[in-house]
Amino acid sequence: MKNIWTITRKEFRSYFDSPVAYIYITFFLVLSSWLFLRGFFLVGQASMRGFFGILPWLLLFFVPAATMRLWAEEKKLGTIELLMTLPVKDHEVVLGKFLASFFFLTVTLALSFALPILISVLGDPDGGAIWGGYIGAVLLGASFLAIGLFVSSLTENQIVAFIIGITLIFAFFIVSEEFVLYNAPRRLVPILKFLGLGAHYDSIGRGVIDSRDVIYYLSVIGFFLFLNVRSVESRKWK
């Protein structure tokens, strides 16, 4: 436990050791607010639905950017050899890195609280939907993070990690979209609907927090963290 926390602290701090994190957060807030407010004043409803609608598409790009460095850089600079010969277990490092990226994402999302505050001033939004939306976003983002972190462990090139991360997350996100389901073989439809990261997000976003959705996200996170541990171990299989 202590080791996980030590690694989390180090990785979380290292986000802020370079100006990239500040640019990242600013860019995320500006872009999300702008995309949201552009439609918000047109529709004229005190609701965050537009925001949570565009959020997955923003996270699709922002999450791999936050995770691409975490393993790829260790591999490129050789620090992975230093790290993995310290008395830490492989899974502790994986969890530590995951938690660091999770806190970083949570901080970023929390800073967008300015929007619901603004809306509450202007009107009377549905609080349940807003909380549901944020919880859904955190769970969805965490799943994206687990996928992105896993992809980062497969390469020593951050750009490759970024692009493959986007591709894999995109694929997992859209399999449950109507468009895909409509064209998929009928037998696969329930499976795809269950596997898709998007469908569960929508139901939580309506303010209905179903334990099945939560368990689904935790399983996706657990699965990719497990793959991550295996991929870190793979140096031993050669």
Binding site: K10, S14, D17, S18, L77, G78, T79, E81, L82, T85
Partner: peptide
């Protein structure tokens, strides 16, 4: 390790 790999940004 060889080449003393260290966390450069720390």
């Amino acid at each position: 390790p060889e080449w003393a790999p260290l966390y450069g940004d720390m």
